[in-house]
Design a protein around this nucleic acid. Structure first.
Lengths: 340, 340
DNA sequence: CTGAAAGCGCTTACAG
DNA sequence: CTGAAAGCGCTTACAG
C-alpha cells in the first residue's frame, strides 16, 4: 500500500515492458497510450501496489496537489465546518487540504504561509489574521487564492463571504424591535473586515431608531475575551438589556459572563449570537442566532480553487456573498419594565 | 518571501561564492562550515530571500517535515483541541501538521492515509476510525506512529489515552450516588476501544449497586445520532432518569432530544457528559462532565513523535494514560420522587 | 503512439 | 573545512 521500499515508475515500467513516461502517461491519463500498453501498465501497477510519490511529481511539475487552508482558530466551529466543507470538492479534484492554524496572529500567519509556500501548493484558502501581512505579491506566489469570510483591502482575489452588514443589522433589529433601547455588541478585533461590516450593520439598525443606543466592545473574538468584556460592561454601564455576539466563542463567553453576574437570559439580558452552533439549539434557553451557510461557503471556495487550478479564470474576480439568516429561538424577549 | 521564481541553493551558492552543499550545510546547521563562509551564505540567503524548497529536500532525504493527524471529525471539539495542542510541540521541532478528516469511515481513512504516505511524512498521529484497516504493516510504513484516544488491538505503537474506564465509571457513579436507578448511556460506535472501555466502566459502576440498571445505546457518536437514540429510549423505555453522553456532540444531541421530548434537565433527566466543552459551563443548567486533558494529550503525542523522529525509541512502546476528572455542575440532581 | 534525455531542488555519500 | 558527482521519483520537452 505504501512503503519504505515502495515501487517506483521504473519498477512498473520494467514489469510492464514499457518506458517510465508511458507509465506516467497511463497513471496521469495524459497523452496517447495504446490499449495494450495501458493494460500491461495497469496490471503492473496493481501487482506492485504502485502509487506515485507526490514529492517527485510535485518537484518536477512545480505544483503539489495540496491546498492550504489558513484560519484563525480551528477551535472555532465556523472554521471546523469550513474545513470539512472545503475538503469535499477538493478531494473530488484530487487535492488534499493542509490546515494551518494561525491563532489570529499576523506573525504566525506569515510563518505558516511561508511554510505552505515551500510545498508549492495548488492553492490557498485564507481567512486572514488580524493585521495580516498578506500582500498582493504573496497572492501572486500562491497563484490560486480565495479569501473566505474576511477580506483584505487592496487584495483583489476571489472572495466568499456572508452578507455581514445586512445580517448583523437584522440581528440588532431583532433586539430593537423587541423593545431594547440600550444594547452592547461584543465584537471581534477592530480592523478586521467582519468586525467593520457587522459594526456598520449595527449602526445601520441603530440609526433607524433615534432613541436607541448601541455600545461596541472589541475583543480578540475568543470566549475568554468576550467574557471579560461583557463583565466590564455589566459593572460599568447601566441600562444595557441585550447583547449581540460576534461569533460562536464570543457568544459562549457572553453566556458565561451573564451567568457569573448572577443574571439570566432572557429575563435580565436578551442575547443574539452570530453564526449558529448545535449547542445553541440545545441550550436552555435556546439561543437566537444568525446562521451562516458555512457548508455552502466552503463548497464555493473549493469550487473556485478547482476552477482556477484548471485554468478557468474569469475576467473579473468573483465576490460571492452568501446570505445569513436569523434563527429565532428563546433568548430574546422584551426588556423588563423596570429596566430602561 | 516565496515565489514562482524563488531563489534556489544554486543562486545562493553563486551569490556567496561557495558550493551548493556549503549552502545546505549552513541552512541545515549540519557539518562544519568556516565562519567566513557561513557569514557570506547567510548574507546571500537574506539578500535573495532564499528559503529551501521542501519538495526537493524531502525527495532527497526521503522524509518530509510533516506529521499527519488523522481524526474522525474535526467538528468534534475534542479533535479540534487535539490539533491545536499537537501543533505547538511539532512546530517547535520544525514539523507541520497535515490534518486529515476521515468521517469515522474506514475506507476514507485508508484513502487519506495512502495520500499522506505519498508525502513521506515524518510521522502519523492517528485516532483510528471505526473498523479501521490500519495494520501493523502500515504502522511500519509511517515509521513514527502514535495512536491517540482510540487504540487498535494488535497494533503495538505508542499510545496516549484517557483513563476511559475509570473516568466513565466515575461519571456513572455520580448518577447512581445521586439516587438514579435506571440510566442510559448513549455511546459511540460499538467495537471502538473508547466505547468498549467506557462501557466496561459503566458496568463496573453498575455492578457495585445490585438494584441499579444501565441501558446502552450505540450510535455513530454524532449529535444527530444521539438525538435519535435518546428519543427512541424516551418513547420505548420507562423509568430512565439519567443519561450519560459519550462525547461532546452526543451530549449536545442528548440535550436536544430532552428538549424535544418536552422534558427538562435536571428535573426530568440528569445528564453527565464525557469530554468537557466551553458551552457546557455556559449552558443553563450547566452540564456536569468528565473533563479530558486534551491539551496534555496533544502535547504528549507531539513530544513522542518528535522524540521518535530524533531516533530516540524506547525498548517498549509507551502507553500514556492521562486521567480525566469529573466537573460537577448543575445537570445532576436526585431523581424525582414519583419516578422509580 | 512511444522512448532517451534532461532536470525540478535538494542532500547524501565520497573525495580531498 | 569544502566541493564535484550522483540521484531521490517524477514529468517535461523533444524526437521519432
Amino acid at each position: 500500500m505504501a512503503g519504505r521500499n515502495r515501487a517506483t515508475v521504473r519498477d512498473v515500467a520494467e514489469a510492464a515492458g514499457v518506458s517510465a513516461q508511458t507509465v506516467s502517461r497511463v497513471v496521469n491519463q495524459s497523452g496517447y497510450v495504446s490499449a495494450d500498453a495501458r493494460r500491461r501498465v495497469l496490471d503492473a501497477v496493481a501487482r506492485l501496489g504502485y502509487s506515485p510519490n507526490v514529492l517527485g511529481r510535485s518537484l518536477r511539475s512545480t505544483r503539489s496537489p495540496m491546498v492550504g487552508l489558513a484560519v484563525s482558530d480551528i477551535g472555532n466551529p465556523f472554521y471546523a465546518r469550513l474545513h470539512r466543507a472545503l475538503e469535499t470538492p477538493l478531494r473530488a479534484a484530487g487535492l488534499s487540504v493542509l490546515l494551518l492554524n494561525c491563532d489570529d496572529d499576523a506573525g504566525l500567519e506569515a510563518a505558516q504561509l511561508e511554510l505552505l509556500a515551500s510545498y508549492r501548493p495548488t492553492g490557498l484558502v485564507l481567512s486572514p489574521a488580524t493585521g495580516t501581512r498578506f500582500s498582493a505579491r504573496q497572492a501572486g506566489v500562491f497563484d490560486n487564492v480565495v479569501l473566505v469570510s474576511r477580506t483584505v483591502p487592496g487584495i483583489d482575489v476571489p472572495t466568499v463571504v456572508t452578507n455581514e452588514q445586512e445580517a448583523f443589522a437584522q440581528a440588532a433589529e431583532e433586539l430593537y424591535s423587541a423593545g431594547h433601547r440600550r444594547i452592547v455588541a461584543v465584537m471581534g478585533p477592530e480592523g478586521v473586515s467582519t468586525t467593520r461590516l457587522r459594526e456598520a450593520g449595527l449602526h445601520e439598525a441603530t440609526g433607524r431608531h433615534p432613541d436607541r443606543h448601541a455600545l461596541v466592545r472589541y475583543t480578540e473574538g475568543t470566549s475568554a475575551a468576550a467574557r471579560a468584556a461583557l463583565r466590564e460592561v455589566l459593572t460599568t454601564e447601566s441600562g444595557v438589556t441585550a447583547v449581540l455576539g460576534f461569533n460562536v466563542p464570543v457568544t459562549e463567553g457572553i453566556l458565561v459572563a451573564v451567568r457569573e453576574a448572577g443574571l439570566t437570559v432572557p429575563g435580565d439580558l436578551s442575547v443574539v449570537g452570530f453564526t449558529d452552533a448545535g449547542w445553541m439549539a440545545a441550550a436552555h434557553p435556546s439561543v437566537t442566532a444568525v446562521a451562516q451557510p458555512v457548508e455552502e461557503m466552503g463548497r464555493l471556495a473549493g469550487d473556485l480553487i478547482v476552477r482556477m487550478a484548471a485554468g478557468d479564470r474569469p475576467a473579473r474576480n468573483p465576490h460571492l456573498v452568501v446570505p445569513g439568516s436569523l434563527v429565532r429561538r428563546e433568548s430574546v424577549t422584551p426588556p423588563r419594565k423596570e429596566q430602561r
